[in-house]
Amino acid sequence: MSGKNIFVRDLNAGQQIQELFLVAEAKLGQSRNGPYWSLTLSDRSGQVEAKIWSPLSQEFSEIPAGRFVRVRGAVTSFRDRPQVVVERLELLPEAENGVTLSDFLPASVRPPEEMLEEIEDLCTEHLEHKPWKNFARKVLRDEEIRSRLLAGTGAKTVHHAYMGGLLEHTLAVLRLCLAHCDLYPQLDRQILVVAAVFHDLGKAWELSGGLTNDYTDQGRLLGHIWIGLEKLEPFLAKAKDLDEQLILHLKHIILSHHGEYEFGSPRRPKTPEAFVLHYADNLDAKLNTIAAAFEDLDPAGSPWTGFQRYLDRYLYRPTPTPDDRNHGQKAPSAQFLLPIKG
């Protein structure tokens, strides 16, 4: 089987396509004209909504998520975003040996091993309190935790939702916290480093990763904040040289990093360090979401994105100030935000 020729990012209204996709989600609905399938099709460049209307929809009793499908159809526009109206759909065998998996698994630009090594180096550099340094080293060198971090994604759909995304997000939040400590030296740099490194540890169990990258039973029932603290607890219990007040503060920072109750935070930030981690986490997530939205824009087209549901607004890609160091050439507008996945 040949590789893909058209990716989700290439889809524009008016196209006729015949292409291979992965089914991320499939729901059967009912309209006045009969049953219909609402699909989310994906590849490494993103996701696109698709519809199978009656009578074609009645040919499928099941369309399993995680299956590869060959789609023939027309690309239309719905709410300023491409949508595929399926004219023919072929479910490929589950063990499809001819599929190039790298076409369907988006990944961070940097290898996960490289990012994890940088996180470890930053811990070595900045953790001067020996109990914190020993604690971080033991957690990061745990075989299961290490393998989970290397394979982890940062989210299901919103930000850093790709292989290596969890470590990319963790590293960015860690660097943001360090920058804040340089600006505000009264902050506890030691505990912020530890909290930044482990604030999203639970996501390595909350999400399955892989082709479907869905929530696990643990993820749906407990959520990554609780799971992360549960994974850290045995290491904290063995860290006899760590002051109980430091452990209490670390738990509070992690518990409150979503900021507000309505955003799933069990507690709201009550210390300066908890506020810093919350805003660093939120900033990195938002900028990654914006960078992904800008990726869909035609460089020669409109500077406005389609409506961004998770940000509840349209986004505008501004004209960048020329970089005088490069003889007046314009600096890239979207690339400054964060590394973009490839």
Rank of each mutant, 00 (worst) to 15 (best):
E244V: 09
P55H: 02
Q83A: 06
K138T: 14
A196V: 01
H159E: 05
M163E: 13
G165T: 09
P303L: 10
F198Y: 04
K133R: 15
S147D: 15
D182H: 08
A280V: 03
S302F: 09
E233N: 10
R137I: 08
A74Y: 06
R67I: 02
S333H: 02
E125V: 03
R317W: 00
D200V: 09
S208H: 04
D241T: 15
E117T: 13
G264Q: 12
D200H: 05
L174R: 11
L297N: 09
G306M: 02
H257A: 07
W132Y: 15
L277K: 08
A13D: 12
L127W: 05
N288C: 10
A331V: 11
V84L: 01
N97L: 13
G342A: 14
Q335P: 00
K270Y: 07
Q16D: 13
R148Q: 13
I191C: 07
Q190F: 00
H159Y: 06
L192M: 06
S77A: 10
S147E: 15
F7Q: 06
E128C: 12
S42N: 04
E87A: 09
D217Y: 13
A300P: 02
T100H: 14
E114G: 05
A151N: 14
A285L: 00
G342I: 09
R220P: 04
P320A: 10
K133E: 10
Q15L: 02
E206K: 07
E262A: 10
S102W: 07
G209D: 05
H224Q: 02
T157C: 00
L311M: 08
E114L: 12
I191K: 05
V48T: 00
S333R: 06
W132R: 08
S61I: 04
Q308S: 12
E128I: 14
P266C: 13
I254Q: 07
A13I: 02
K130I: 12
L337D: 11
K238V: 11
V139N: 01
A161H: 13
S54Q: 02
L28H: 01
E96Y: 03
S256D: 04
R309Y: 09
V173F: 03
T305E: 05
H199R: 11
I191T: 08
E59I: 01
I247D: 09
A155N: 15
A334G: 10
R137W: 13
R141N: 15
L250E: 07
R44D: 05
D142A: 15
I119L: 06
G209N: 09
D323E: 11
K330V: 09
A274F: 08
F235W: 04
E206G: 01
H159K: 03
G228D: 04
D142V: 13
I145V: 15
L232Y: 09
